[in-house]
Design a protein around this nucleic acid. Structure first.
Lengths: 200, 200
DNA sequence: GCGCTAGTTGACCGGTCGGTCAACGGAAAT
DNA sequence: ATTTCCGTTGACCGACCGGTCAACTAGCGC
């Protein structure tokens, strides 16, 4: 075996930061290399292309998100639903304090920019979103079993709706210059209208 | 005066098409010029920069959207609310048939990609979204006056929520390969949960 | 201590990027 | 008919893009 280092990880983490602060198109491989203090040859030793780097960044965020959702607990399913909104709010708040403003969702940003440009990356993002939605759906189904959902509310549709709302809300906050706290608030509102009155 | 032509308009319309089918970063000025059969010098006669072209494209879509919303009528405010969902669905369906798949919202795509990159463009998009949201809000307020809204539903928040939902739903359809019809359906669902039962 | 190999380096490449410019052309106003 | 000036043209620019490569180096297994 040859030597071992943290170069690859440094590249991914640095890219994650740069991709949040700007767009995929405006972040060059040279930018990444400079910021990560890595020579370009090393970059292409680990990644066959810039697009593959983007996938790695998506994976990084996916893992982080799943971890945080797993840590989200609450007595009732209804409370766990609100916990999801809190998790999203917390992540966005961290980004906001790091970059000084809402910079968007790591998945949503890449999805909007590259879904029509790179099919492989779109697939990758679709999988990430699907996984995310499945996590939501599990909680929504439990909420329904608990009788916390309003009549006629389909748990799968609610999960999808929740995800869409999250994406849209973050996007609007990003372009409108709103705060991460507002994102969480409107998310809580959406959950409330789907819950039976009095449910906790 | 010198001669007059449709060059500028041809540039804008061609760009609108290209920007929907791909991303801002992946569409070069040369691409636009080739597709519009315009020489680059002419392009820069009308637009000081590529970013200014993007603004013009945003304006084009804004006008089209406002026109369509104005044409949306219905007996009751509740029906007009659903008419908004239909309008969005119709626009997306047209894009879908043109490009063979859901390609995203013209505003949302640019907002996601460029909000963190170009401040002037972000402002421009923020104004477009604000105008859009105001149109929604008027209808939501009327619905409330008609007593069609569920108790505790704030019309302004509903308008914002509707916009966010639209954006998120379109984004998810784009990355997930869903159809424009699904977007409209989920939008109708969202409206229904905010309406008092039995309201039309 | 030696060989293997994963990791590193920096020079290099062709193409494309957004943008510039001086010269030219043609319709409208006089 | 001449002036005027918006519109048009195509050659041109330096910077930067993503990506390549041959030579080199340092650590692990032996």
């Amino acid at each position: 075996m040859g030597r071992t280092g943290d170069t690859r990880e440094r590249i991914v983490r640095t890219s994650a930061r740069l991709l949040l602060s700007r767009s995929y198109g405006s972040v060059s491989v040279d930018d990444v290399c400079t910021a990560a203090d890595v020579r370009k040859g090393s970059f292409y030793h680990f990644f066959p292309s810039k697009a593959e780097l983007a996938k790695a960044v998506v994976d990084l965020h996916t893992d982080a998100l799943i971890d945080r959702l797993a840590a989200t607990s609450g007595e009732s399913a209804a409370a766990r639903l609100h916990g999801v909104a809190d998790a999203v709010g917390a992540i966005q708040a961290r980004f906001e304090s790091t970059f000084g403003r809402v910079v968007g969702c790591p998945f949503g940003n890449l999805a909007a920019e590259l879904s029509t440009v790179d099919d492989a990356l779109r697939d990758h993002l679709a999988s990430a979103f699907a996984r995310w939605e499945r996590e939501f759906a599990v909680i929504c189904h439990r909420a329904q079993q608990d009788g916390a959902l309003r009549d006629g509310v389909d748990p799968d549709r609610l999960a999808h709706s929740l995800l869409a709302h999250t994406q849209g809300q973050i996007l609007l906050a990003k372009v409108g210059g709103h705060s991460a706290a507002d994102v969480a608030t409107t998310l809580h509102d959406l959950i409330d209208v789907h819950l039976r009155e009095g449910a906790v």
